[in-house]
Design a protein around this nucleic acid. Structure first.
Length: 294
DNA sequence: ATCTCTGTTCACAA
DNA sequence: GTTGTGAACAGAGA
């Protein structure tokens, strides 16, 4: 599930544990979630420590504990954080459980595309956290910087750029589609064809959608208004929510992900005529069923 | 049974 | 060397 706002929602789920001591923990150390993580060290450092703080950056979470211990969490595709009263029953996919007096802080992830990290780092977050690119709501997320990325990646479809966490930390599949729909940009337009004003308006919509998603989904998992593409993108046969448009929404694979857009508001990019002659416009694309040799 | 999925990473092609 | 694409990862739900 989680993109920026959903990850923020999950961050807050552990808030009841702030200031509390970790009296024990349970984990499935062999799970894929812990790849590259020093599990014995994590266990030693967190047992008996006090949960001090939590931070959000894009889709990354960082939890700080006494003793300069830092727990990094990425929720992948299906990760969730929750609090159980008492020791809790424990679900099949609970891979990390921090026990406190009267509650359990749980990280569950069925598909295990998520990730746990552990670091010791005195006084400040670990290096990998400090080296993350500017968050989309950070002032350093500037049009100028964005313009550089658009130029460098001028052949890539704009949707692929929006999914790049090194440029747009926290933007995921539905947020990318929401932003493109508001900009009236087709998802497959090459970044280099967007025009001189592109970085400026792109920055504006990225920040607007991020901010509003954080105050709805991020606060209490409530839906954004019905004026958002978000409310219409999942079901088949739904129409563009823009007033006076009502065009049937299209779904197809773009940049490797299921993409939803309005063919009325988001006109297809000019046909590419390279030597391949292949169609680059996905207007009526159909998924090819791959022929597998047996 | 078959297909889908709000993410990331790796191998490989251009 | 750089950039773009698609498969793989693993499980649940329709």
């Amino acid at each position: 599930m989680p993109e920026l706002a959903e990850v923020e929602f999950f961050r807050r789920q552990w808030d009841p544990g702030l200031g509390g001591r970790v009296v024990g923990l349970e984990l499935h150390s062999t799970a894929r979630l812990f790849r590259g993580c020093d599990v014995p060290e994590l266990r030693r450092a967190l047992t008996g420590s006090v949960f001090r703080e939590s931070r959000l950056h894009g889709k990354n979470l960082l939890f700080g504990f006494s003793g300069d211990a830092w727990l990094g969490v990425h929720l992948g595709m299906t990760g969730e954080l929750r609090v159980d009263p008492g020791p809790g029953p424990g679900g099949r996919h609970d891979h990390l459980v921090l026990r406190q007096a009267g509650r359990s802080l749980v990280f569950a992830d069925s598909r295990m595309f998520g990730r746990v990290r552990f670091d010791h780092s005195m006084g400040e977050p670990p290096l990998w956290w400090r080296e993350l690119p500017p968050a989309v709501l950070d002032p350093r997320f500037s049009s100028r910087r964005l313009d550089g990325h658009l130029r460098r990646r001028d052949r890539a479809p704009i949707k692929a750029l929006l999914l790049d966490q090194a440029i747009f930390p926290g933007i995921g599949n539905w947020m990318a589609d929401e932003i493109l729909w508001r900009l009236r940009w087709h998802p497959l337009i090459p970044a280099g064809l967007l025009g001189p004003d592109a970085a400026h308006v792109l920055r504006h919509h990225v920040r607007w959608v991020s901010r509003r998603a954080l105050t709805t989904i991020g606060r209490d998992w409530s839906d954004p208004p019905a004026t958002w593409l978000y409310r219409h993108r999942w079901a088949a046969g739904t129409r563009c929510p823009r007033p006076h448009c009502q065009t049937l929404l299209v779904r197809a694979t773009a940049a490797g992900r299921t993409t939803c857009w309005c063919p009325g508001c988001q006109p297809a990019p000019p046909e590419h005529h390279g030597r391949s002659g292949g169609r680059t416009v996905a207007g009526g694309h159909r998924r090819q069923s791959p022929q597998r040799p047996r």
